[in-house]
Design a protein around this nucleic acid. Structure first.
Lengths: 337, 337
DNA sequence: CGATTAATGACAACCGATTGCCAAGTAGTT
DNA sequence: AACTACTTGGCAATCGGTTGTCATTAATCG
């Protein structure tokens, strides 16, 4: 049964007319119930239910200054790494009554910057994954709107860091224990801080252990780049590779298979992120597994803590997510040569 | 160099004050340029540029009734099938100056219905992929807000249909040509119209060709369901399976490997959608490839045609995307038994 | 050169909510 | 009974735009 009347969504004015009170009373009854007589409130709530009232979020945003939306920026929606991240943010945001505005910044700093500017008015806060912006730009943006970054460490900007660097040295130890002594790091984009941090951790660990590592690349974080990466690795004479991420690693697997180079017998491959597909590619990929969905949730929690400072605990401005090595079948003993 | 002044975003009033004109003139200069003196317009545009003005989308939405946003509803964000779809809609929407509101309806008709109701005020139109709602609910919703469905055929609601049914009979022919005569269809969710339509196409084709097909399931469209599906298929004695989608098919591959049943020698598997991963799983999956990203773009075009009826061509209310079989290594001749 | 018409821009109402302010009403206190 | 203190709810301004109405000015034409 629908109430008779127009098809247009009900407003507080409709409710007010129905109950014979002022619109402001309706607004109060719904947002600050304790400031309105309990019987009046009951009448208003009944009328609201009957009219199937839902507040107009635009109007609410305009008058209150809060939009109830949070922007989530990722460099590439089709990268499976972000699947779980997005799901994590989506679930947590919905639970808190926020709407997620998802934007693909196409790995471009310009798109990212203009999106940031636009979102400044239409979102209450922003979560930026794997930002391609400079530290200065990011810091400036964070000063204008509450922000949490993921995998981007800039002083003064709250961040969730997935601790792949420490897993990187685990991966190196794993390879060393298998007898490898010449290892390549397949680098990601130059603008990626994650790639930089991993390489730094790797060179340091290599020095400690007395093995040789070299960096190849940079390569775009896509499976298609895997072919070039594989060729470069073979040419460089290493027996094992640690790839910037699973996409590249999977691409390498495909290329090596095409070239008849057996994995792991002739070349060991370690990926990063444990994305969808890492467990069923051929061979299944040894990789550094990250709690990605959880990272998304934590980022949302940190952002909401900024938005509603009253509610409970203090603001954490840095959260490090542990990462561990998951060994599958793409790594094995170095061949005797 | 930033203009001196407050940190608050500039409004048309700031521009008006700067140029010594009324706010409405500024509004007209920016939205109906031909109704304003060209010199005044130039001054206003210069001022807007200098103040780094961006219109407040909330205010715009409130007064004009248009939000500039389009809702995109998918049942499961982490299903790779939707990533290409989402990318297609995102690109096309951005090109047209719209914002995408992405919502994961969690395969739930209730979440879908309430999202639809909420979006009615905060979006100009909606794209619903693989709806779980009843025909009636969908039709009622479409009467309230411009809508395009994807893979859901309801009279009166514009739709983009990915023509997997016809590919299904191609797949059956492929299997028949390999000598298979006992084939199972691994069904998707009961509420999925796609699954229903594929099964209908399959039974019809089977009858024409005089082979036996049976339906197993329903199974949830996730890799985890593949184990149960694989066991059911083995138990039923078929030599080939056509799966509802690639996720299930990949899950089956994994399970069959665990059980030591060789694919394709002992069991042939055909997937559907050609998602990320179908080409590098083990063995690479024979599957029905769909132009998913294109489907997303087409859906957006159809929706925009509804929103702006003036611009050019008439409104198509149904668009069928062709699909074809991509043969890889998960299908082969039936073993002699 | 005067009149008709079109171009231009200012004013103000409006979209649907929030919120500060104040008046009316109620209860409790002495 | 008078007074204070608190509760309740209405009025009106406000957010930042859009848009209808109308007066003014400029251009075109006879």
């Amino acid at each position: 049964m629908q109430a008779a009347g127009t098809d247009r969504p009900a407003t507080i004015h409709d409710i007010a007319a129905m109950c014979g009170v002022a619109a402001s009373t309706v607004s109060r009854a719904l947002s600050t119930p304790e400031r309105v007589n309990i019987r009046t409130r009951a009448r208003i709530e009944a009328a609201a239910a009957e009219l199937n009232y839902t507040p107009n979020s635009q109007a609410k945003a305009l008058s209150s200054g809060r939009t109830g939306a949070v922007g989530v920026l990722v460099p590439d929606i089709t990268n499976p790494f972000y699947f779980d991240l997005i799901r994590g943010t989506q679930l947590q945001l919905k639970a808190a009554g926020y709407t997620q505005l998802l934007v693909d910044t196409e790995e471009s700093d310009e798109v990212e910057a203009s999106t940031l500017e636009q979102l400044r008015k239409s979102a209450d806060g922003i979560i930026v994954a794997a930002s391609r912006l400079s530290d200065e730009s990011l810091l400036a943006a964070a000063a204008r709107i509450p922000m949490v970054t993921i995998n981007r460490d800039v002083a003064g900007v709250p961040a969730v860091i997935i601790d792949t660097p420490s897993a990187t040295s685990q991966a190196l130890d794993h390879l060393i224990s298998l007898g490898h002594s010449r290892v390549a790091y397949i680098a990601g984009p130059l603008t990626s801080q994650s790639s930089e941090r991993r390489w730094a951790a790797l060179t340091e660990a290599a020095q400690d252990r007395g093995v040789e590592v070299r960096s190849l690349g940079p390569f775009a974080p896509k499976t298609q780049s895997g072919a070039a990466a594989a060729d470069a690795a073979v040419h460089s004479g290493v027996t094992a590779c640690i790839a910037f991420n699973d996409l590249i690693a999977i691409g390498m697997l495909q290329r090596l298979r095409e070239r008849g180079i057996r994995v792991p017998e002739e070349m060991s491959i370690v990926g990063c992120d444990d994305i969808f597909g890492a467990d069923f590619c051929n061979p299944p990929l040894t990789t550094m597994a990250s709690p990605i969905e959880q990272a998304g949730r934590v980022a949302v929690s940190m952002l909401l803590a900024q938005l509603n400072p009253l509610a409970g605990g203090g603001i954490r401005n840095r959260s490090v997510m542990p990462t561990h090595l998951t060994v599958r079948s793409s790594t094995a003993s170095a061949r005797n040569s």
